[in-house]
């Protein structure tokens, strides 16, 4: 039996709009995954340490404050420092198209903007996991 996919849903930065994070957390659960949600106002350090200790397959971050260009690359830097290269990192929120290439270059595998169906995110995760589910 294949094991379940384990996902950390994280809210970096100070914005308190967690509707999207909570909806995605529930949708991932309903898709059969194990989900850990960090709650609001998490620093990149907290997010990466949690990903490390929980040994998750995926980190899914949601941000609506506009601080993504600062916070997402910082998370990626810490992921690398902690040798978490086989963890899939994705992001979502109000993120202008212009910023997406830079975030991808920093290592964020995909950016989901408003209006993305949860099913798209779920399919992306399943298709792009960096570790085996055996």
């Amino acid at each position: 039996m294949a094991r379940k996919i384990k996902v950390l849903v994280a809210k970096p930065g100070l914005d308190g709009h967690d509707r999207g994070a909570k909806v995605i957390a529930r949708a991932l659960r309903d898709a059969g995954m194990e989900v850990i949600y960090t709650g609001l106002r998490q620093t990149p350090e907290q997010i990466v340490q949690t990903a490390l200790q929980e040994d998750v397959d995926v980190v899914a971050m949601s941000i609506l404050s506009g601080a993504h260009n600062h916070l997402f690359p910082r998370v990626m830097e810490l992921m690398r420092q902690n040798k978490l290269d086989d963890v899939l990192v994705i992001g979502g929120g109000v993120i202008p198209e212009d910023d997406i290439p830079g975030l991808k270059a920093a290592g964020i595998a995909a950016i989901f903007t408003p209006g993305t169906p949860t099913s798209t995110t779920i399919e992306f995760i399943k298709a792009n996991l960096k570790r085996s589910l055996e």
Binding site: G13, L14, D15, R41, T43, S65, G66, A67, H70, L71
Partner: peptide, 22 residues
Amino acid sequence: DLPTQIGYDSDHPLSQGEVGKV
């Protein structure tokens, strides 16, 4: 901006990247 709304000055570590944004 969010640091102001949460009572942090602009030089607070949690304010990084958030100053003047929203």
